[in-house]
């Protein structure tokens, strides 16, 4: 396990550097601090997971890094260059269903290439490669409505990868899926991440998912959110969901829950107080 202060001390230029990113929202009832300064360094090819109770600012952090939120304090650097706003080096996969229902699987994946002016033949060839990568070859001419939730989320992942982003951000990408699909899709994400050596930042509520996928798990405090603790997951790679029954896996889940329980309890207490008023 690592102490909070050592999160951002790697001397080599990291693929993604988040420096003192913080956000305060102004509301009619006064300012709400959603995120206290957060600093994280992520190495090339590293997979980190950020876990925390609802309302801790995980999505705010992701939106700031991904560029959907531009009005924040601190800086985000990709390969040492400060970026603000949406950037092609950073790809995002969203929690909600985000495939375009009027496009086939192939045209969904080819979407960013089409927007960039890549020719039809080339973009379709690239999209087919990515559909193969996510295990959807044979479904290229299907519309999203004809596919399952897990398949649609794989299309969204392939579409994000089409642009070859240096950093892949995933905001609870499996939240809307059933447990079995979630586990299998986790395996698929691991396989893709290992094949492409893709630097990845995952936001999740699910402890087992974080342990299954990540090299490091960052636990966030309840509002105002900041990094409470970092847990290094030294499970061997390549990994898969088969590891979930292992003793070491259980140890990490228990360790993370120990810290997370306190924060989740604070969130639950606040929710109950709001409801009682």
């Amino acid at each position: 396990m690592t102490d909070v202060t050592s999160i951002a001390t790697d001397t080599k230029t990291p693929a993604l550097r988040i420096r003192d990113v913080a956000k305060t929202f102004s509301t009619p009832h006064g300012d709400v601090v959603a995120l206290k300064p957060v600093s994280i360094d992520i190495k090339q090819g590293e997979f980190i997971a950020i876990i925390g109770p609802s309302g801790c600012g995980k999505s705010t952090l992701m939106n700031a890094v991904g560029g959907l939120l531009e009005d924040y304090e601190g800086t985000v650097e990709v390969d040492g260059k400060v970026v603000r706003g949406c950037h092609q080096e950073i790809g995002m996969v969203f929690q909600e269903e985000s495939t375009f229902p009027w496009r086939t699987a192939l045209d969904n994946v080819a979407f960013p290439l089409e927007a960039a002016g890549v020719g039809k033949e080339e973009r379709h060839a690239k999209a087919m490669e990515l559909l193969n990568l996510v295990g959807l070859d044979g479904f290229e001419n299907r519309f999203p409505a004809e596919l399952s939730g897990g398949m649609r989320q794989r299309i969204a992942i392939a579409r994000t990868l089409a642009f070859k982003p240096r950093i892949l951000l995933m905001d609870e990408p499996f939240a809307a899926l059933d447990e079995q699909t979630r586990l299998l899709l986790g395996d698929k994400v691991l396989q893709i991440q290992q094949e492409l050596n893709q630097t990845t930042m995952l936001i999740t509520h699910n402890i087992a998912e974080a342990v299954q996928l990540a090299d490091r798990v960052l636990i966030m405090t309840f509002r105002p959110g900041t990094i409470k603790r970092v847990v290094d997951i030294d499970l061997p790679r390549p990994r898969s969901s088969k590891m979930m029954g292992g003793e070491r896996f259980g140890h990490f889940v228990a360790t993370i829950w120990e810290d997370l329980r306190e924060e989740a309890s604070k969130g639950l207490l606040e929710l109950e107080q709001v409801r009682s008023t």
Binding site: C86, G91, F94, F111, R159, T160
Partner: peptide, 20 residues
Amino acid sequence: VLLNVGRAFSLTPRQQFTMI
């Protein structure tokens, strides 16, 4: 979320309208 996909891919306002 569909609009956010467009923003994440740095679409121009015109592309955002015609493509999404």
